[in-house]
């Protein structure tokens, strides 16, 4: 017979411990770095008592609740630095960010990017009581990156847009609307909430309208896709002006010849920042484009290989590793010559 000491104590006397443990698991799961062994431990913990399960689901619902993010938006801050980053801090910040993501050869580029951000940051310093924002932003401001670069733009309304490589965009703010045109490439948006001033994005194949949310737009040759990480995003495909899609957290829409809606795992938003993409049935040609944009490397593919379809999680900021592994799996050869990767049929 097994005597469980814990079972003698009332549930009410253990509630603090259980809530702390439940909060620990929820934070762990949402940190995106929970290990497999910990998952097993979590499952065992949940099975041990109905009290564990109850507190875990309550903590999980609370953490995922959009009411919580809404409440946090009005919370007093320790140091108000979100809107007006001092130039020096901005410089350090972007350098640290780049140090974490960049390859050694990007270090030179990182300084140039840092300067871009610095000027953008100065430019967008909000003045306390002037509703008129920077005139350059009112006229339309062009933002561009070359392959392999990244650019983080802090807009005066508090929104943050992170441009991927080989991307071209234009921001234009009016008193009633925030316009953003994504002409080429991909960008991650963290849009500051403002119901009176919707954020409108024009892409190649669809218009996107939000009031405050986080999502990623990627444009490929064959389609434009939107991954929603938080809030609600409204999308109107150009091909069908009358229809409107409302997407919530975890939804992915792909607008190409058809409009397809699927789901993806929205728990790890840093996936894209860290160079990961999750693709089903992407052509080798399109995947190579993503790699080129992110890494700045040139890739030339044999004609009969471009339409090869691949599925899985790919790390596009490490072209050498990725192409090597794919070559083994799909039977093509990778040759690196004159700063270019050539992919040729293995037979």
């Amino acid at each position: 017979m097994v005597i469980r000491i814990g079972a003698f104590r009332h549930y009410e006397d253990r509630i603090d411990e259980i809530q702390a443990q439940a909060a620990f698991w929820v934070a762990r799961e949402n940190s995106g770095r929970i290990r497999e062994a910990e998952r097993i431990e979590l499952r065992e913990w949940l099975a041990r008592s109905p009290a564990h399960e109850l507190e875990y689901t309550l903590a999980d619902s609370l953490y995922a609740d959009e009411t919580l993010t809404a409440a946090l938006k009005t919370a007093p801050r320790l140091a108000a630095q979100r809107r007006a980053l001092p130039v020096k801090a901005a410089l350090e910040w972007v350098q640290q960010g780049l140090a974490a993501i960049a390859w050694p050869k990007l270090v030179a580029a990182s300084l140039c990017l840092a300067l871009c951000l610095a000027s953008a940051s100065v430019l967008f310093q909000p003045t306390p009581d002037a509703p008129a924002e920077d005139s350059r932003l009112a006229r339309g401001m062009v933002l561009e990156t070359r392959p392999g670069e990244r650019l983080l733009v802090q807009l005066p309304d508090g929104s943050r847009v992170e441009l991927g490589g080989d991307t071209s965009a234009e921001a234009r703010f009016t008193p009633t609307e925030r316009h953003f045109a994504l002409r080429r490439g991909d960008a991650h948006f963290d849009v500051a909430h403002d119901t009176s001033r919707p954020f409108l994005i024009q892409t190649k194949r669809a218009g996107v309208r939000v009031v405050g949310t986080r999502f990623l737009i990627s444009q490929l040759d064959e389609d434009t896709r939107v991954d929603v990480y938080d809030g609600t995003v409204e999308i109107r495909p150009d091909s069908d002006e009358t229809s409107k899609l409302l997407l919530k957290r975890g939804s992915r829409v792909m607008i190409g010849r058809d409009v397809t809606i699927t789901h993806f795992d929205a728990t790890d938003e840093n996936d894209w920042r860290n160079g990961w993409v999750d693709e089903a049935q992407i052509s080798l040609g399109d995947l190579a484009k993503l790699v080129e944009r992110r890494s700045g490397e040139r890739i030339v593919i044999d004609n009969d290989l471009t339409q090869l379809k691949l599925s899985g999680r790919f790390r596009i900021n490490r072209p050498d590793d990725l192409l090597e592994k794919l070559g083994h799996a799909y039977g093509f050869k990778k040759i690196y010559k004159d700063n270019t990767y050539y992919l040729v049929d293995g037979n």
Binding site: S31, L78, R82
Partner: peptide, 30 residues
């Protein structure tokens, strides 16, 4: 619920509140 959560958030120590805002609202890594 919003008002209740706002009160609960206000009751947190300032540093803890700042950490939560950065983690959950701004999605910053640890």
């Amino acid at each position: 619920r919003l008002a209740q959560l706002q009160r609960a958030i206000d009751a947190l120590p300032p540093l803890r509140r700042e950490v939560l805002v950065r983690r959950r609202l701004e999605n910053q890594s640890y």
